[in-house]
Design a protein around this nucleic acid. Structure first.
Length: 422
DNA sequence: TCTGGGGTCCTAGGACCC
DNA sequence: TCTGGGGTCCTAGGACCC
């Protein structure tokens, strides 16, 4: 039988914020999405105070003031760096691992020859905490979906000390499924959850007991896999060598709605620079580009509009100059006056390996000039956005709000924490 | 006043082909 | 009355994840 573990960092962003500001320990902390829009992470103390996940900041202002909750803007430079540390600890301890998200990692423990797997997991948990300062919970099960179920329960229970191993106690699987709401199952989102509840399927156990044919018809092959996984049948193996990305994107909601074409242009050019940098960093080239802009869907009083356009490159490219030329043409084509634009994004599509691009006669004649490499090196050394192509002006109304940003403790020299000795 | 960003996979339907 | 059958490719949209 297969054995998967899911290691999940507890309240990851909030834990990162605490790492370099220890006085936040045992205190309620929330971390906000980009633009300081809504809550995307909460410390346990904030959860207890009734701050819901995804709550817009303006709806919880009163709670924040009442309880003196600490509020932080997202600091992805910090979280990304801490994540790498956690993952490298996990990778060094397990036979095989798959980084599933910024704060989650699946381990394949099949080939791990230890007497007591639960004890091994407890040790791993202590080691991770000691070496990185980040608390984690570990769930173990015969499939990834069951490891997820175990992980949720491990987090909630005070008895199990952060580790729940369903492979050691197979008789615990059914009670665990009964305790898990169907909407909390990995792979069951809002829509399916509502549909299932309506039909009397309330728990993971109910779902595991549903008829295959019915599931296949209502939820397709994806839903059926989830059901099989709940029954202990492996449908999702460990993917320790993820395929290269097929698309990548840079999009932002603006600080406020913008009607001025020049302002939106600047935002779009900034996103273009950023997204091009991303594909170069991944060592890829893009076959096509897409641009979209849209108004604010939450604004009931203004006209709604969403427009987009795309272009295919003659030769796949990662050069900001090629990409911005294309984006600019699309922008002029799709732009409409008279709307309050609130969000824009640039997507690079059909990403691939440059070595696999067929060479044409003209490519051979045309040598790369090294400008992009130089640009990336300067920015890697002196900070993102330090050297740019002059496609957009600095500043602007579209910049996102980040009113409670913590320092980049681990990725910027100037922000390294200092310790004062008494 | 105020609601994130970045991905994946699957499916249905249309265009087109022989 | 009767109106083929079976492919492929592409795209848009919908579900999900964190």
């Amino acid at each position: 039988m297969a054995t998967f573990a899911l290691v999940d960092c507890n309240n990851f962003y909030a834990s990162c914020e605490r790492l370099f500001q220890p006085d936040l320990r045992d205190r309620p902390v929330v971390v906000l999405s980009n633009n300081d829009g809504c809550v995307i992470a909460r410390s346990n103390e904030a959860k207890v105070l009734g701050i819901p996940m995804g709550a817009p900041l303006f709806k919880i202002r009163r709670l924040i003031e009442e309880h003196g909750i600490t509020v932080r803007s997202s600091n992805y430079a910090l979280y990304g760096d801490i994540s790498e540390r956690v993952m490298s600890v996990l990778g060094s301890q397990a036979p095989a691992h798959e980084i599933y998200s910024i704060d989650e990692c699946f381990l394949d423990l099949d080939r791990l020859a230890v007497g007591n797997l639960t004890d091994w997991c407890r040790e791993l948990r202590c080691r991770t905490q000691q070496w990185t300062g980040i608390p984690v919970s570990i769930g173990v099960g015969p499939t990834k979906t069951l490891a997820k179920v175990a992980n949720r329960l491990a987090k909630k229970s005070t008895k199990v000390r952060g580790v729940l191993d369903l492979t050691h106690h197979p008789e615990w699987i059914i009670p665990a499924l009964c305790k898990t709401a169907v909407g909390d199952v990995w792979g069951i989102g809002r829509r399916w959850s509502a549909m299932l509840e309506e039909r009397g399927i309330h728990t993971a156990h109910d779902l595991a007991s549903a008829q295959d044919g019915w599931v296949r018809q209502r939820m397709g092959i994806v839903g059926l896999r989830t059901v099989h996984e709940l029954r202990g049948l492996v449908c999702h193996g460990l993917d320790d060598q993820p395929a290269p990305r097929l698309t990548t994107c840079c999009s932002r909601t603006f600080g406020e709605a913008i009607r001025d074409k020049a302002q939106v242009h600047d935002a779009v050019m900034s996103f273009t620079e950023r997204v091009a940098e991303k594909v170069r960093h991944a060592g890829q080239v893009a076959g096509a580009v897409q641009l979209f802009i849209r108004t604010d869907p939450f604004d009931q009083n203004s006209a709604q509009k969403s427009v987009s356009g795309s272009a295919t490159f003659q030769r796949p490219t990662c050069d900001t100059r090629d990409i911005s030329d294309a984006v600019l043409r699309i922008f002029d084509r799709i732009w409409r006056d008279g709307y309050g634009w609130r969000k824009a994004g640039v997507l690079l599509l059909d990403l691939g390996d440059p070595a696999e691009v067929p060479k044409s006669l003209f490519d051979i004649a045309e040598q790369p000039d090294g400008l992009m490499e130089a640009l990336d090196q300067i920015n890697a050394r002196f900070g993102r956005g330090k050297a740019r192509l002059g496609l957009a002006r600095k500043g602007g109304e579209w910049r996102m709000r980040q009113e409670n940003l913590s320092p980049s403790y681990t990725t910027r020299w100037g922000d390294i924490p200092s310790v004062k000795m008494a």
